[in-house]
């Protein structure tokens, strides 16, 4: 699904956009977590097609996405970034949006539209 469509479904607004073409890119997978340890340990999909959906609006959410090569973060519950973290996101060319939906509803909307989980619980590999 194009990010543009996802943004529309979630009624999300931009916090900082650093790729002018990002809205037209296709995304297939969502990692939904407030726990960055889980994102780092369990995301197993192509990062270029993966979005991080989280309620954690801090530098560590940005850093986690950076380490995983993910370039789109959607914040739930109207969370936004501090000015310092907007600068950090810009330096990483990260694209961050915010939606008023709580995480459960945001995930439900995207799941219903066919997006898949980006994570797996593969204990045998840990």
């Amino acid at each position: 699904m194009k990010l543009q469509s996802m943004i529309g479904l979630l009624q999300a607004t931009p916090v900082t956009v650093n790729d002018p073409y990002i809205a037209f890119k296709e995304y297939l997978y969502v990692s939904c977590t407030d726990l960055m340890s889980d994102a780092l340990a369990m995301i197993c999909t192509n990062p270029a097609q993966t979005i991080l959906l989280t309620g954690l609006a801090n530098g560590q959410a940005l850093r986690t996405a950076e380490m995983m090569d993910i370039n789109v973060i959607i914040l739930c519950r109207n969370k936004t970034l501090s000015e310092d973290n907007i600068d950090l996101a810009t330096s990483m060319e990260m694209n961050v949006f915010t939606t008023s939906l709580p995480m459960f509803e945001a995930v439900g909307v995207l799941y219903k539209e066919g997006l898949k989980t980006a994570t797996r619980n593969d204990d045998q590999n840990i």
């Binding site: 407030d34 726990l35 960055m36 340890s37 889980d38 780092l40 340990a41 954690l56 801090n58 560590q60 959410a61 986690t64 204990d123 590999n125 840990i126």
Partner: peptide, 27 residues
């Protein structure tokens, strides 16, 4: 061991301290 942690509540509020760090490093 995955899940074992001594991290503070502050660390957990930053999104870490779930006891996944060392196992994930080793992986």
């Amino acid at each position: 061991q995955p899940g074992w942690t001594t991290a503070s509540v502050d660390a957990q509020s930053m999104g870490f301290g779930a006891g996944m760090g060392l196992p994930n490093i080793k992986k």
